[in-house]
Design a protein around this nucleic acid. Sequence first.
DNA 1: AGTTAAAAGTTGCAACTGCAACAAAAAAAA
DNA 2: TTTTTTTTGTTGCAGTTGCAACTTTTAACT
Lengths: 212, 212
Amino acid sequence: MDLFMNIKGQNKAKLLKLLEANTFTFKENLTILNNIKSDNIIGIVLKGYLQIVQIDHNGNRTLIEELENNDVFGSYLSSLNNNEYELITKEESTVILIDYQHIVNYQENSKQYYNNFVKNLLMILMEKMQEKNERIEILTKKGIRNKLLEYFNIISKKRGTNTIYLPYTYSTLADYLAVDRSAMMREIKNLKEEGLIETKNGRIRLLYEKFN
Amino acid sequence: MDLFMNIKGQNKAKLLKLLEANTFTFKENLTILNNIKSDNIIGIVLKGYLQIVQIDHNGNRTLIEELENNDVFGSYLSSLNNNEYELITKEESTVILIDYQHIVNYQENSKQYYNNFVKNLLMILMEKMQEKNERIEILTKKGIRNKLLEYFNIISKKRGTNTIYLPYTYSTLADYLAVDRSAMMREIKNLKEEGLIETKNGRIRLLYEKFN
DNA sequence: AGTTAAAAGTTGCAACTGCAACAAAAAAAA
DNA sequence: TTTTTTTTGTTGCAGTTGCAACTTTTAACT
């Protein structure tokens, strides 16, 4: 899903001007906004790879979102608590930043490209919403085992296969599930010993039939 | 935030016709859609009060969303796992149902009311996204105590006061935090004994200065 | 190829949490 | 006002989890 779908080259330029969008390129490993929350902006990743990380008062870092080409981030992040967010480039990245107010306050109606842009943004948000709901479903499961199984179910259903290729490290998975890594490893070991799964490298094969 | 903001009476009627929207009124305590996921729809609550509840294979019920006047629900619910959802009226309720595809596939651009509708939907979704993110922030905290404190922080910040009026029962709060109710009560007792909070009826007063 | 850093894999242990099973209080219904 | 239902408040206990501390393995640099 592309934010600029149905918006041709020169109209895209007009649109970006209309919305007072700014394009930036950042070298890798830079914290480019450490207070996304207070800035009411929408960002679009044109190229690169970034992470949104939350840092609490103990200095614990939680991965909130990963951003790749065409991903959209911003505004909807809670501006209501004291935790800090960091937006970090993990590769050299190019992003477009737009003030959210510029998007919604623009009242003129005749510009096709503007209307398309709003609709595209809506569709992207719908997708993101689904991802958030998936994560909530996993997080609301009680116990590490149930979180893991729910995660496996969702992924395997999505990919249509019983073999799951972790898209990241086990450490990151533990963060995603919001559990202690060593405790998670212990549970994975249990699942293996009980014959419910097999693992090899970052690959997990589910040996049970659909779970719920 | 009203989904029909800037859409006048007769245009609203035109819009609903254009989108092939259907309006229904249901008596209280009815399960009106038990497979929201598979139906790719957007619903708007005109009047009443409904809940979206998830039922897992053990029959455990988890409250996913509460819906009141002008709330929007639907499509973005994960269609990817096997859990069942139920949409239940808790009061007599009137809802509008629209096929999501009718919204996004409509290509004509000249109808102001259609464009406004899309933009309004976008804004509502942004708000919902914030709520989801708040819940994720809470759920990713480790331990019941930290979940509670994060919840208190968010609410008190939002209301701008140190006194929190629970919008629902403690049982429901435990569901929201995805923890065992009795364990949560125990932790609340601990917080009281340590002098961090005071409670009376459904009212919680925070006795500490900002937490993180 | 050799060094350094990151991730995976383990374990003991104390603290925490879920569960079950109640009693008491409050709210809703009759 | 009684009765019934829901919610709150408690507790013991077993099983689970987080934490700290390490070793081994894998990946990334130089």
